[in-house]
């Protein structure tokens, strides 16, 4: 109920925030990072089942009896951890931009 009350008061505020340069910078920075990275990890992820289903290329040996399929599978883990850390780092920057939006809103 509280939320509903405040909403009517601040509807115009949200519009002005959306059109503020600080917010637009935040959005475009986020898009620049999140969209390509998301496309990348989906491609990387689906490459594994597609390759294992439609080719035998990953059945070749890497070292000893370990085949490329296992190497690629393990790389999925590395990819996940790396992108996870990368996101945290980028997000710290997004937080700063979000703070600027918030400060701009108070003026």
């Amino acid at each position: 109920m509280e939320a509903r009350k405040t909403k009517t008061n601040s509807e115009s505020d949200y519009t002005s925030i959306v059109h503020s340069p600080a917010f637009q910078t935040l959005l475009s920075e986020k898009k620049k990072f999140i969209i390509p990275t998301t496309i990348f990890f989906f491609c990387f992820y689906f490459a594994l089942p597609i390759l294992t289903s439609y080719s035998t290329i990953l059945n070749h040996k890497f070292i000893g009896s370990i085949t490329w399929a296992w190497v690629f599978a393990f790389l999925q883990f590395i990819m996940t951890w790396v992108l996870c850390m990368l996101y945290s780092k980028k997000a710290a920057k997004f937080d700063e931009l979000a703070n600027q939006v918030q400060e701009g809103g108070k003026d």
């Binding site: 992820y45 296992w70 599978a73 999925q76 883990f77 996940t80 996870c84 996101y87 997000a91």
Partner: peptide
């Protein structure tokens, strides 16, 4: 063997979808 491991990979990579698109 390997086919069982598909579950492990998918269950983990799923967290990138959560982190990048949904959580915040």
């Amino acid at each position: 063997g390997f086919d069982g491991f598909f579950y492990s990979i998918g269950f983990l990579v799923a967290y990138l979808v959560v982190l990048y698109l949904v959580a915040e």
